[in-house]
Amino acid sequence: MCIHLNSLHAVLVNGFVCKDPKVVTAEDFFLAAKLDMPRDTKISKVGSNVTLINVMKIAGLNTLGISLARIDYAPLGENPPHTHPRATEILTVLEGTLYVGFVTSNPENKLFSKELRKGDVFVFPQGLIHFQFNPNPYKPAVAIAALSSQNPGAITIANAVFGSKPMISDDVLAKAFQVEKKTVDWLQAQFWADNHN
């Protein structure tokens, strides 16, 4: 057992410092996350709110290889194309309908997608770009995702490409996307908000 500790004076395991086992308590394995409560989807331009429970929030997850997320979707909200570099994700729809999918790697770039309803489950393989979208213009949706890492990471594609700091050269992106530089400049000028808490 290696409980994550915010200190530099202990043994490192899997990238995180371990707390002395003699001082571990039940609180190291607990978080009053209130995952049964709806989250505000208006905080994000994409209409979703991801509440991630990982090793940074529950120290006892250190070295256990799991984490959890509640995802709330506004009507027509989405969790935009993103990837988890360190985790496979399994998503269960709790309320509403979601259109979900992932894309395989080059050269196939094949899209695997499905419309999910309450109780349905879908798996997103580690490292592949995937998304979830609520197609209902009137009703919100909610899902729970389990991830196979204590710290899965999330790279939202649009944020990484058009919102990097410093910015990627518009010459590079114009050529990569085969668009005019003014289109890239417009995209880079947008406010790229994070929907992850």
Rank of each mutant, 00 (worst) to 15 (best):
A59T: 00
L147D: 01
K139A: 12
V50I: 07
I43W: 02
V23Q: 11
L128H: 01
I144N: 02
N79S: 12
L8H: 14
V13F: 07
D185M: 13
K19V: 08
H82Y: 02
A141K: 12
S105M: 08
S48H: 05
I144Y: 14
E95I: 11
L91E: 01
I168M: 05
S105W: 05
L187K: 10
E108Q: 14
S113G: 09
P137V: 10
H9G: 07
V13D: 00
L64N: 08
S149I: 02
A32R: 14
L5W: 14
T88A: 10
P140D: 08
M37R: 10
G77H: 08
K42Y: 05
K45R: 14
G163P: 07
S113M: 09
F112P: 03
T97Q: 15
G47D: 09
R70L: 13
C2L: 11
A33S: 15
G15W: 09
A87R: 02
G47Y: 11
D40K: 02
E27N: 15
W192Y: 09
R117W: 07
L116W: 05
D170G: 02
P75F: 14
V121Q: 07
C18R: 07
K118G: 04
K45N: 13
L98H: 08
A174Y: 10
S44T: 06
I58Y: 09
L111G: 07
Y73R: 12
N159E: 00
F131D: 00
I90F: 05
K34L: 00
